[in-house]
Structure formats: C-alpha cells, structure tokens
Simulated scan of single mutants.
Amino acid sequence: MKGTPLRLAPLLAAATLALSLAACGSSSDDTNESSGASGENFPVTIEHALGTTEIKSEPKRVATVAWSNQDTALALGVVPVGMPKVTYGDDDTDGLHPWVKDKLDELGGEAPVLFDETDGIDATAVAKTTPDLILAPNSGLTKEEYETLSKIAPVVAYPGQAWGTSWRDAIKLTGQALGKSDEATQLISDLEQQITDATEKEPDIKGKTAVMSWIDPSDLSKVGYYTASDTRATFLNDLGFETPDFVTKASEGSDQFFLEISSEKADELNGADVFVGYGDEAALKKVQADPLLGQVTAFKNGSAALLEDNTPMAAAVSPSALSIPWMIDDYVALLADAAAKVK
C-alpha cells in the first residue's frame, strides 16, 4: 500500500481485509469498576446486524476488535483488557495512535494487551484476555467471526452496514453496552460542539461539495471514491460539506463503501468542489497533467485536501470519539484551504 499518493488505500485495505488500524487497550477490574457504570442498568439487550446480544450484568473486562472501538470505550472511561495493535498511522511504532496513548495515560490502569489483526480477528488472543464483553460496533465482522467470538463473550456488532457505523452510533451502542448511556449522550453533545466551534471559523467550507477519493497516480485510468455510507465521507457532512450528486446516486441501493469510475467519465467528477485523499503536491501535479483527469474542475483549481500517507492524521480522519478532538482543528483548516480555491 506504500507509494500510492492521493489515495485512501490504507484505510480501504483495512476495511476490506478486516485489518484493525487502531490499537491498544486493557484494563483491570478496578479500572472498569471505577468508571461509573451502574449495575442497575442491566441486563441490556442490543440488536445488531448479526443478531441480538444480551449483556446480563455490568461488564468488568471489556475487549474490542476492529477499527476504533477501543477509542469509544476509552472516551467513556473504560480501558479494555485487549484491543487491536495499530498497523497504520503509528508514528512512533508503539502500536498506539497518539490520541489513544493520551487517554490511556489519563485513565491509568494495567498496560493493554494488543491484538495482532494483520490476518484478521485473532479469536485466540481475544480469548486469552478473558473478556466478559467484546465490542465491535464499528467493524466488518463476518457471521463466522461473530459466532466464534460469541463463544468467548457477548459481542456487540455493527447495527447496519459493515464498516458503515457512524461515530455517533458507535458511541450510543458502546454506551448502552457499558451501562453508560447518559455519558454517551453527553459525549456526543460535547463532540458536536467541538465540531461547531471548529467549522464556524472556516466559512469557505459551507455549501461546498466534497468527496473522499482514492486516486492512484500509477494508474489514472480510474478514480475511486467512498460512498455516502462510509464514515470518512459522512464526517465531511458533519463539517459542513455537501455530498456530490454522483456519489449520492451511486450510493443508493449499494452495500459497498467504495466504488470506482472510469477516467473516461471524468466529467461526472465535476460535481465535487473538493477532493480529499492521501498524497502530496507531486501526485496532484501528475493528476493535473493527465489529459482526462486534468480537465476535472477541482483538479484545475487545485482544490484538493492532501493527507500525508501513513500518518496519525491520515488515520484520524476516520472519525472516532477520541480522534475527532485530536484532529478537528487541523483537519478543518486543511479542508478550508482547499475549499478557498474553489472558483
């Protein structure tokens, strides 16, 4: 996945292969017991896409699998006994994203067990942490993986489309599972206020259209983009952007989070005022020089927000309860710079 600027391939690969690109966690019973959950909130029954899960009593040992679920638990004051090791955007190779490390330092407790999910969910490693709850509301768990994990502990899977759980729904489901629904509601409100505060400073964004795009400079015969169900794309709506018509139409009735369009139909891409993707100026110049893609209005204007590949910021734009406050000001500023170039 390296050497492919102007693309969101690493996060695409993560979802496609069920890799987890976020990491860390563990907690002693004392950490969870002091987190404020009340046994009076249980039992809890949660319906999701893979079945119905009953949580009979307050969880004491919480494990998370897949993308960013540890972030949500940590944001609600619970340090999991196990969580995935970061394989993308880990700038200091310790297996943790910086926003996760900060929260772990704040909460304290035992050092987390980090699961290696390079080849998929490691059920054996999860079982060794002896969890009484497994959180995966933001994931692409298969039915087989769900059934395997359910033999270890109750599992909370995604509510609708695989890899399509919004950060709000992830917080709501996690709060319900942990007996912290009130705290979850407050957390959502706090994050929404942070988003409002950041976007109010950048009026150039409002009313513009934006697409999360994956363009490989080594193959400009096609353009990839994320559908309206993808969390990175929907987060652009949170920030004030509108979804281009071509994305909306292509997303209708689709269960995919990623689609492609031939560069021969590049004129359809003119519906996006701003393109967001991994890369650098050299990659953008190559796209601009292409006889087909170079005619796309956004590329002519240079209204592209480029995220440096394999950095914490590149990972953070897939929003979570912890990554949003960590990246919001810088991300909005980057997007606003691109929006200001729209003509």
Rank of each mutant, 00 (worst) to 15 (best):
F115M: 06
S150V: 05
K56D: 10
G207H: 06
F275A: 03
S181K: 14
V276T: 04
D290F: 07
L284H: 04
G175D: 04
G164L: 02
G271E: 11
L307W: 03
A162R: 02
N270P: 04
K300H: 07
V296M: 05
A340D: 09
Q194V: 08
L8G: 13
P80G: 07
A14V: 10
A228G: 14
W99C: 00
S323D: 01
L17M: 13
G240P: 11
A314C: 03
W67G: 05
A170T: 12
S218L: 12
E242A: 14
T196W: 11
G253Q: 01
E264T: 06
T248Q: 14
D204I: 14
K180C: 06
N310D: 10
T87N: 14
S27P: 11
E54T: 15
T248R: 15
G109K: 05
S323R: 01
L259H: 03
V86E: 04
L236A: 04
S318G: 10
K265R: 15
P137E: 07
I46N: 01
I188C: 03
D90T: 05
T209C: 05
V79E: 15
A340G: 13
D273T: 04
K172E: 13
Y158F: 13
K286W: 09
D273M: 09
E268P: 11
L239T: 06
E192W: 15
F275R: 12
L236H: 07
A13W: 14
L220F: 05
Y331R: 02
D91N: 15
P325G: 00
P43G: 10
N301E: 13
